[in-house]
């Protein structure tokens, strides 16, 4: 079981990294999500697999085959946070594409490198765009 999990993590992480290195922005953002899921799985597996009983402790007893609940709590937190960040990244990507049709990472860098706009029209002209 642990080997299957390890291989899945490796496969997902490789796929995520490969997508991250793509020129296409959409793939970069999706790559982060895939890599994030690989890492979530790795964190989950850090609590050791195999023990399958729920981690409830009846009074006076010590459950021997209880699964480790801590990594489960950690990974649930990480999934929720990761989902929110991913949603934000997607929204940003969409807005950025609506504005200037960015599809490629090189273009994004080029836009950031443009000289600063003049401020004559008001305090934050760029903000009005």
């Amino acid at each position: 079981m642990i080997w299957l999990t390890a291989l899945t993590v490796a496969g997902l992480a490789a796929l995520g990294l490969w997508m991250l290195l793509d020129r296409n922005l959409k793939r970069v953002v999706l790559g982060i999500a895939v890599l994030g899921n690989a890492i979530n799985l790795a964190v989950f597996a850090a609590g050791r697999l195999g023990a399958e009983q729920a981690a409830f402790t009846p009074a006076g007893q010590v459950p021997l085959a209880a699964a480790n609940p801590l990594p489960q709590a950690l990974v649930l937190t990480a999934i929720v946070i990761g989902f929110a960040l991913f949603a934000f990244a997607l929204a940003l990507l969409k807005r950025s594409r609506d504005l200037h049709g960015d599809r490629e990472t090189d273009h994004v860098s080029a836009v950031t490198e443009e000289p600063a706009p003049d401020l004559r029209q008001g305090p934050d002209r760029e903000g009005q765009a």
């Binding site: 991250l20 934000f88 940003l92 504005l99 994004v108 950031t112 443009e114 760029e126 903000g127 765009a129």
Partner: peptide
């Protein structure tokens, strides 16, 4: 990304992607 605009959103994308990587 507050305020928007092409240059700012492009910079935000870079910022978001690389910081997410660090977080992972």
């Amino acid at each position: 990304s507050l305020g928007g605009g092409p240059r700012r959103l492009a910079g935000s994308l870079t910022y978001v992607a690389l910081n997410l990587l660090a977080t992972l």
